[in-house]
């Protein structure tokens, strides 16, 4: 509807106005399609849960919203969100920092790589969920065990990507720098690390998504706060509407964090993000 009306107005104007009018529609198109997708989804969900399915098992969006209002008014939901978010951020930052440092060393020093790679190849299959029991024994059910589990989930993604980025620095680029007078150390700092940035950032994005997945089981099994805890208690009391509020919040939180991360990367590391193809 919006599309036709805008195009119609553009067509009514003299020549040059047509092109900008069309491009506005083209630019808005992705946003409009997202809105359309969400609208269709919610209408269908509302209809199905009200008239076809059991609204107790699958509460309609209106019921979920109704459950959300008191949780927002008392601040309960925001408390859980901020607790989970802080855990994710602390574990993520620690895991990324250590993985980048170790990854850069492993990518550049063959002996270190050869000695550590077999161990990492084994340990990376231990998901954060698998580490929950031992984390609780080591660190208790307080914050430290959550930091550790997020750290664990972040570390391997970032490490493996950092190693790959350092190793895949084009040999031509390193030799070009060498011809221009760069020492071994200068090549490392001025060429290898910048070349690895796109890989490191990709690893961090994957790790971020995985952190939001691992914080939930960690909080369900061993915590007295956070979104996982909220989910767990709502489940025990069979409060499906509150479960849906928690699920929607987790999705939204992960989505927003990823967008913020991308925005931050775009603002600060944009020039490093270009992969240059051959030719």
């Amino acid at each position: 509807m919006t599309t036709t009306s805008t195009a119609g107005r553009g067509a009514g104007r003299p020549g040059p106005a047509i092109a900008p009018a069309r491009s506005v529609v083209e630019r808005l198109r992705p946003l409009l399609m997202v809105l359309a997708s969400l609208a269709i989804f919610f209408v269908l969900w509302q209809f199905l849960s009200t008239f076809v399915l059991n609204p107790y098992l699958i509460p309609p969006p209106t019921a979920v919203a109704a459950a959300f209002v008191p949780m927002a008014e008392t601040g309960e939901i925001f408390k859980h969100v901020s607790i989970s978010l802080v855990r994710v951020v602390i574990g993520f930052v620690l895991g990324s920092a250590l993985a980048i440092v170790l990854g850069v060393v492993m990518g550049r020093m063959r002996v270190v790589y050869e000695l550590l790679d077999p161990i990492i190849e084994f340990m990376r299959y231990l998901s954060p969920t698998a580490m929950i029991p031992i984390a609780v024994i080591w660190f208790g059910i307080g914050e430290n065990s959550k930091y550790f589990l997020i750290f664990w989930g972040t570390f391997f993604f970032v490490l493996i990507n950092t190693i790959a980025g350092v190793m895949r620095t084009p040999i031509a680029r390193q030799r070009a720098a060498e011809c221009l007078g760069a020492s071994e150390f200068q090549i490392f700092i001025l060429v290898v690390i910048p070349s690895a940035v796109p890989y490191i950032v990709t690893g961090m994005r994957v790790a971020m998504a995985s952190s939001f997945m691992s914080i939930i089981p960690a909080e369900m099994l061993a915590a007295d706060s956070g979104l996982g805890y909220l989910l767990q208690t709502a489940g025990m009391l069979v409060q499906t509407d509150r479960i849906f509020v928690a699920l929607a919040t987790i999705s939204l939180l992960g989505f927003i964090t990823d967008r913020l991360f991308r925005l931050l990367v775009d603002r600060t590391l944009r020039r490093y993000m270009a992969f240059v193809s051959a030719g």
């Binding site: 070009a176 051959a278 030719g279």
Partner: peptide
């Protein structure tokens, strides 16, 4: 100074 066929990888893209 050496020149490479693949200028894309020889240059510093950042």
């Amino acid at each position: 100074v050496m020149f490479f066929q693949d200028a894309g990888s020889a240059l510093f893209p950042w």
